[in-house]
């Protein structure tokens, strides 16, 4: 399993591996929003939590179809399915690799972009925490969506449509946590709900995704 994680990370960091795709998108969005909305600090501060969370979510969505599609194309997925590693483990590891290359950098970069968007000072800590707690769910739900659409050519659109409704709770509670913190309110409740979604996704979705993969490999 460690070998699979190392391979996926190595592939992501090598040329053409897609690392930085989501991060680049996130940066561009956060730089463009003040230009589009206007420089009024009050307005920017008001929409900052929502923009940052929507940006992180879309950045995650960008690289989802790579999770299984590339392995399916070159035959690795068939070979992994016949390997000693259970397919559930393959799914979990690949979602973890996706999170390390996408969600984690987003959580770390978000405070810098928070400055660009004039996020209120108390919101910064919760911004990092909420993204760190919420993005694993985005990767795991995304891996499920990718597993459902793995055999399809140009399955990206269908996958986005399948995955976006499942992303809603994470977005709502994540953005809510940052908004409340920025207003100086207690953000514990949305953060707990966010953790709950992540824990549930990580516990259940590897099994659902592995089941979908087995059907798609037939």
């Amino acid at each position: 399993m460690i070998a699979l994680l190392i391979r996926d990370l190595r592939l992501a960091f090598r040329a053409g591996g897609g690392f930085g795709l989501g991060l680049g998108f996130f940066l561009i969005l956060a730089v463009l929003v003040p230009l589009g909305v206007g420089p009024d600090p009050a307005t920017l501060g008001l929409i900052a939590p929502g923009i940052l969370w929507v940006g992180a979510l879309l950045a995650c969505l960008l690289s989802l179809d790579r999770i299984f599609a590339l392995d399916h194309e070159d035959g690795s997925l068939d070979l992994l399915a016949t390997s000693p590693i259970p397919l559930e483990g393959v799914v979990a590891i690949k979602a973890l690799a996706h999170w390390i290359t996408t969600g984690l950098p987003l959580a770390l970069a978000a405070p810098v972009l928070g400055i660009l968007l004039n996020l209120a000072a108390p919101g910064f800590g919760v911004l990092i925490v909420s993204l760190a707690l919420g993005t694993p769910a985005l990767s795991m739900i995304g891996a499920f969506g990718a597993a459902l659409t793995v055999g399809l050519k140009r399955g990206g659109l269908l996958m986005s449509l399948l995955v976006l409704p499942l992303y809603m709770p994470t977005l709502v509670f994540g953005a809510q946590a940052v908004t409340r913190a920025a207003q100086g309110l207690d953000a514990a409740t949305p953060l707990l709900l966010l953790s709950g979604i992540t824990a549930g996704s990580v516990a259940l979705l590897p099994f659902a995704a592995a089941f979908a993969l087995r059907i798609n490999l037939r």
């Binding site: 035959g75 690795s76 068939d78």
Partner: peptide
């Protein structure tokens, strides 16, 4: 199978 499961950048 027909596909070797190789990663081109490795």
């Amino acid at each position: 199978a027909h596909a070797d499961g190789l990663k081109s950048t490795l």
